[in-house]
Amino acid sequence: MTSAAARPLTTARWVVPAMLGLVILFVALWAAVRGADPVEQDIEQRLLPPSIDYPMGTDGFGRDVHTRVVWGVGYSLAIAALTILFAGGVGALLGSLAAVVRGRTEYLIIRVADLLLSIPSFLLALIIVIVLGTHPAAIASALALGFAPRLARSTWAAMLTVRDEEFVLAARAAGVGPATILLRHLLPALKGTLLAQLASIGSAAIAMEAALSFLGLGVPPPTPSLGRMLLEGSRQYFETAPWVTLFPGAMLAVAGLALVLVARALEGRNLVN
């Protein structure tokens, strides 16, 4: 229950992420109004500094950086959403399964999660991308493999604290089955924590995807990806045309920060309960 005194504080936590979201929306709408093409090359217009015609300048192929940044953010968010879906589905499912079923299954799931956690998640993603290729679904599952065990473990740990609470015992005594207990009683009790975790997985996924692309191991060109734009910009035109590097990075930071703060706000709501 949110107490009256705590409410303004938790609402205040949504102000900054909402503003960052509006910034992204504004930049995207502006691009939609301008209607430029993210992959169309115009070699006579290459490396132009920001101007009214090209708000974020043009890159080495004469492509419009603004439009590419917007498509890149879209791509980043799509990867983040897929990763959240994969990691959230698998991690939360196995974590709650471990907490509800108990016994050998619980032991096995937690041990396997621990094993996966011993490899830094970025390394895990790197290996899988090399092996599986750079299809967006492959990248998302590579990232998800790093996050799912963490989520499974924390879901399990959070459920340990509530699975023996009286309201759960009461439900069991009333003859409610384990699946219903999980869906109706346990998951709603942990909703805030889980959503916060999913949001922070999203922000980490955006940063990792960008890092993979920056290393040249992400989605191949000409798909506009922010990490790849940073790679091309910083390798070739870093000093002469810094806008090619600055704008994609700034959008990356804005999107990542928005998700981190969303996670923070969700967590805050949970602490008040």
């Binding site: 940073l230 870093f238 590097t245 930071a253 990542g256 920060l257 981190v260 703060l261």
Partner: peptide, 21 residues
């Protein structure tokens, strides 16, 4: 809190590029 949020959200390699520039 600000330092923490920025450290978690802003990709290190972009800050590195900004720094070098």
């Amino acid at each position: 809190e600000g330092v923490t949020a920025l450290g978690l959200a802003v990709p290190g390699f972009w800050v590195a590029l900004l720094l070098i520039l």
